[in-house]
Design a protein around this nucleic acid. Structure first.
Lengths: 252, 252
DNA sequence: CGGAGAATTGACCAGGATCAATTGAAGTGG
DNA sequence: CCACTTCAATTGATCCTGGTCAATTCTCCG
């Protein structure tokens, strides 16, 4: 089940390891990535940890299920999806990741990645060698705690998706999805109402446990009801209140 | 939406902190709980960490969403479910936990628990004070690594549930659920084919994103097809191969 | 033995899936 | 610069899985 066209044979992502420029200590994402009050010395140690950067073009894969696990990746710019696939070809999108979010946590369990991470647009990630992260965090309680919180947050997020998939109807799912995107964009200083979707209807559907047709129909209905304005992947949230009421089950 | 009867007002679980007896070092679950080759000295430090034990009766709650998070809990004996609830009353069972499995990982993210953990039968858990676990693991790389693997495994498990909820049909979901139970029982030395379900049809349904009627009907159909033998909560797997084929999407 | 909750089963309905056609947008090469 | 290709999105018609409502039946306890 192809999800994103990859016309060229898609070689490995270009390893742009030129350091020099941006470091954690003056990265504008550091509040999202590792929101703690670190000292300058601690930042220096972080900067040493995160030395490499990777650039990926739209459609390229950061890692695949089965690849040996060596590092986590922090999204610097761009947008990703992660997906797992079953034997019989069906696949499930397990998440969409934007700037400041971490990729690869699932690989720790078995020393190999358990999902595919695909760039949905031109993207850049910071490479965090995992064994070094573990070493550093042993002498650095705040970092340790922060890392544990990030893993736990991923578990909580997954439970939210389970609730969405297990007990919400189509419209509620899409509403929850849009509001979630909106919140995350707002937290990054973008407009919470003007969304530019980076993924196709099919990818949304595969995430929400719906078909692409159902997703499209829901978009249309929301537009008719004056909740959204939809022009392809350009979506404006017109009536956030109603959207929120939808998620809570009130069929408003 | 009541899931388990709790006739008595259910006070806090009885805190049986009598140490002395069983310690991690000679716990027969240690392969499941912390499967590493620890030295005697390392075991001694673990034993000091896990000093308290709690006993819960069927229907009692170990922790609730919103409770302050202070410890993780390792199931020693018994069976639990975890659930999250939405504002409008719908709840979602996020997992069933048996001996050797950890409860409470979701609480790390926000310093308070994000789900309810309910004992489905008389159960005993080991209390693992979290800040002590973090402290200990800073001087104890194998423990640190093991803990990270456990968290990551939970993420991988959740992704599996997302795939189940997002892309499987009712029969496939129930088949996957039963096979999962079977594997976990086998890993604990129990029969992988004779299952005694600790949860109601409704709880299974709430976990699998189905109604209790659908769960019941699937059980009946599996019995008609000679895949299972079902007598209430006493379920025998007769034809494991067909069950496995069901999960892979081949409609047998 | 009687009552309460759990499970089964049936009848009916509806939310989404499926199949299929059409429109729309974006990139390609003449 | 425009026809052509290709893929994404929309929309319609129909079907089917699983939800809903309701009636028994079965267990387990008090």
């Amino acid at each position: 089940m192809a999800t994103l066209s990859t016309p060229a044979p898609t070689p490995a992502p270009t390893p742009t390891s030129p350091p020099g420029a941006v470091a954690c200590s003056n990265c504008n994402l550091r509040e999202l990535c590792l929101p703690m009050g670190f000292t300058p010395d601690e930042f220096a140690r972080l900067d040493a940890l995160v030395a490499t950067r990777l650039t990926l073009k739209r459609g390229e894969t950061l890692f695949r299920s089965g690849d040996p696990f060596r590092a986590l990746y922090a999204v610097r710019t761009g947008f990703f999806k992660t997906r797992i696939g079953s034997e019989d070809g069906r696949d499930q999108v397990t998440g969409f990741q934007m700037a400041g979010e971490l990729l690869g946590l699932d690989g720790i369990s078995s020393d190999q990645h358990n999902c595919d991470a695909v760039a949905l647009e031109h993207s850049q990630v910071c490479v965090i060698p995992f064994s070094q992260l573990e070493t550093l965090s042993r002498g650095f309680p705040e970092l340790q705690r922060q890392f544990h919180k990030i893993m736990s947050r991923e578990i909580v997020r997954d439970h939210g998706v389970m609730m969405l998939l297990g007990s919400m109807r189509a419209e509620e799912r899409l509403a929850a999805f849009l509001l979630n995107l909106s919140h995350r964009l707002k937290a990054r200083g973008f407009s919470p109402s003007a969304l530019l979707l980076r993924m196709s209807r099919e990818e949304i559907g595969t995430y929400l446990g719906l078909t692409l047709e159902t997703v499209s129909r829901c978009f249309s209905r929301f537009q008719e009801d004056g909740i959204l304005e939809v022009r392809q992947r350009q979506v404006s949230i017109v009536d956030q209140t109603t959207l929120e009421r939808l998620v809570s089950g009130a069929s408003a």
